[in-house]
Design a protein around this nucleic acid. Structure first.
Lengths: 185, 185
DNA sequence: ATAGGTTTACCTATCAGTAGATAGATGAAA
DNA sequence: TTTCATCTATCTACTGATAGGTAAACCTAT
């Protein structure tokens, strides 16, 4: 038996929900659908996650924690600022754009009015983490002050998210590099 | 009787649908809801727009045509390239970000997998129009070639759309200028 | 000018499908 | 024996869509 043989149902539900949110946002999945994919009933999904909000929060929190843990530590990593930034740009492309997806953040942001409060807060926190990490990279080598670094972080994060929108709407993957290339080097 | 006194039902439906799409995307409105807001029955909305796809196409096409007609003509306008670009950036802020909204394009793009084909095509065309206009502005004074101008257009459009995402998710309107300020002057 | 037909813009009623959620029962494991 | 994970069954609410009816407005040929 390989160690990935048997995954517990709870994680399995989260895996499927995560995928569904990435593909269609908060309204694009249902308890019934998730249950059917696993081979259980929708009531059993409710056992693990009482409400849709609970499930979405769990998915988003897990995704965010995983994302944060994969980010190189700005202080201890021996990478240069440019290497870190290029890695961020490349990672966004590999994990999101190349899979014909948009980020889970973008997907949930357009649903923001329909989200339960807890999800909205989790989402805002995710952006905060990204902006802070980018900000700290921008301050790394240059003598940039914090305000200026936050501005650069906003600029970069907006470019990446916007670029993925352009790709998704036009179907032209090259537009990603067109839109974000200026950020490199 | 003022001349705006009586609007025909069809346009009224489109007005409400447009608003709903801007606020929540393709899944955020129903025939019943629109009908209730006007004071008619959902079947009557179906009379004007047989399917949800038809209604969405009509709304998007009207929005796009109106948008296109409001863009200054790059050749005949006496504005400089910088004036035109700043106007575009400001317009996006005034019409979209300041109203705590995202663009109708962004909203529909995240729903792209659920859209009927005709809507998807209309949407892609909208992006094409924006990119072409921006591209022609970038070619205006500089001797920039078409390829380079398209790249700049992608970069700029991505920044605007991405900036509005950042604003929507964090609730901080200032992030718009942070993210797009570098495009000015 | 008007009678007869047509079109417009709505209506009521209804359909099958899906949504999120809950109550209460069951069997297996700890 | 209690807890866990699942089930069946069901609820209310809502979805997009259709069939068929109606009253008024509009057209056209006599």
């Amino acid at each position: 038996m390989s160690k990935t043989e048997k995954k517990d149902t709870k994680s399995l539900i989260m895996d499927l929900a995560e995928n569904a949110i990435i593909e269609g946002g908060f309204n694009a999945f249902s308890f019934r659908e998730l249950a059917a994919q696993i081979g259980i009933k929708s009531a059993s999904v409710h056992y693990h996650f009482p409400t849709k909000g609970d499930l979405t929060v769990s998915v988003l929190r897990r995704y965010k924690d995983n994302f944060a843990s994969e980010l190189p530590c700005v202080e201890t990593s021996h990478a240069s600022a440019n290497q870190l930034l290029n890695g961020f740009i490349d990672g966004f492309k590999t994990k999101i754009v190349d899979n014909h997806n948009m980020s889970i953040c973008t997907m949930l942001t357009t649903d923001v009015r329909q989200l339960p409060d807890e999800v909205r807060e989790e989402l805002a926190d995710f952006y905060r983490i990204k902006l802070n990490w980018l900000g700290s990279v921008f301050m790394l080598e240059t003598g940039m002050d914090e305000k200026q670094a936050q501005i650069k972080a906003c600029q970069m994060l907006a470019s990446l998210h916007g670029a993925s929108i352009l790709v998704q709407a036009t179907g032209d993957v090259e537009k990603y590099e067109d839109a974000v290339g200026y950020l490199r080097q």
